[in-house]
């Protein structure tokens, strides 16, 4: 039986994935925090990706596959820490994968790396340039992690490496920035803008990762859910109220509030509610036959206030 090591296993998505994989894989994981009430046959090691102890886990657990989702995607820590954990942590992980004979690696990136821009084509494929940092420099570490792992695919072709870029993930367990955004009582939006946004349910993301492992996929793949709606519809369906603000006012305001720690995202994140970032999931569907189980209504229902 293959043994999968999941980084970030104690997070919402990590837990779901661990439970999903238990039928067909042995599962172990690492995280900085513990997972209370985990299944008995799942070992969780509380380590930091950057530390020596992380390498020990590879030695003792001897996994054959790795799913890397243990990244800091929020801005509650300093930029340095974020960069350190994400970029250096991933670099360490890639090195370990080489040294300890890992056969399959799945890295969970996101649709955000493409960036939101007025001239984005609709339904971009995986070869589209990663433009996130053009107006959202705080994303640079996540873009770099994606690029690092994509380069790894070519450097070590004998390791089946897949980079997954799912669209906005919503669900009951997962902690995503977009989930937090939609769940606010009053949701700030950019006045006069209402871009199309794609969503996928957390269970479907787990399913996509499982399929990736089963098929031993190699390459970069967008993972797309059942469809797209304007962001205003998403807000309404999540049971919240949109609060349109004029952009010239909103940008400096969010900028200040973010620096004072009163808003969880920097002003650059506004572009994602102003311009569309829509992806084509064709490559992944062709490779695995993936079909999302959860429709848009169920997805929004799962985050309803």
């Amino acid at each position: 039986m293959e043994k999968v090591l999941i980084t970030g296993i104690s997070g919402g998505q990590g837990r779901l994935l661990a439970r999903r994989l238990l039928d067909s894989f042995e599962v172990c994981g690492v995280d900085r925090v513990a997972w209370e009430g985990r299944p008995k046959n799942v070992a969780v090691h509380q380590v930091d990706l950057r530390k020596r102890k992380f390498e020990d886990v590879f030695r003792t657990e001897q996994p054959t596959a790795v799913v890397h989702m243990g990244m800091v995607r929020h801005f509650r820590v300093s930029e340095q820490v974020r960069h350190d954990v994400n970029v250096r942590g991933t670099k360490q992980l890639l090195d370990h994968c080489v040294h300890y004979g890992i056969q399959k690696l799945v890295m969970i990136s996101s649709s955000y790396v493409y960036g939101a821009a007025a001239d984005n084509p609709f339904y971009m494929d995986e070869d589209s340039p990663l433009g996130a940092t053009r107006s959202y420099p705080e994303m640079r570490d996540l873009v770099e992690v994606d690029t690092l792992t994509s380069a790894f695919i070519w450097k070590y072709p004998h390791i089946r490496t897949a980079v997954l870029r799912p669209v906005n993930v919503l669900g009951y367990y997962v902690h995503s920035m977009i989930g937090e955004y939609l769940r606010q009582r009053r949701v700030p939006t950019v006045m006069g803008f209402d871009p199309m946004m794609q969503f996928i349910h957390e269970e479907d993301v787990s399913e996509a990762i499982a399929l990736t492992l089963q098929h031993g996929l190699q390459g970069v793949f967008n993972v797309v859910g059942p469809g797209a709606v304007p962001v205003s519809v998403a807000i309404r369906e999540a049971g919240s109220t949109a609060w349109p603000m004029p952009e010239p006012l909103m940008r400096p305001l969010i900028d200040r509030l973010f620096r004072w720690g009163m808003v969880p995202y920097p002003a650059g994140a506004m572009d994602y509610i102003k311009y569309p970032v829509t992806l084509s999931g064709k490559r992944f569907v062709d490779a695995t036959g993936f079909r999302p189980l959860f429709g848009l209504e169920e997805i929004f229902h799962s985050v309803r206030r």
Binding site: D119, N120, P121, F122, G192, F193, E247, Y275
Partner: peptide
């Protein structure tokens, strides 16, 4: 697509930013 309101209405009425891919 950079104009407020106009961009939204254009999209609802069936227009899209004119990239060849789209």
């Amino acid at each position: 697509s950079e104009l407020p309101w106009v961009s939204v209405y254009a999209a609802r009425a069936g227009a899209a930013s004119g990239t060849p891919d789209t």
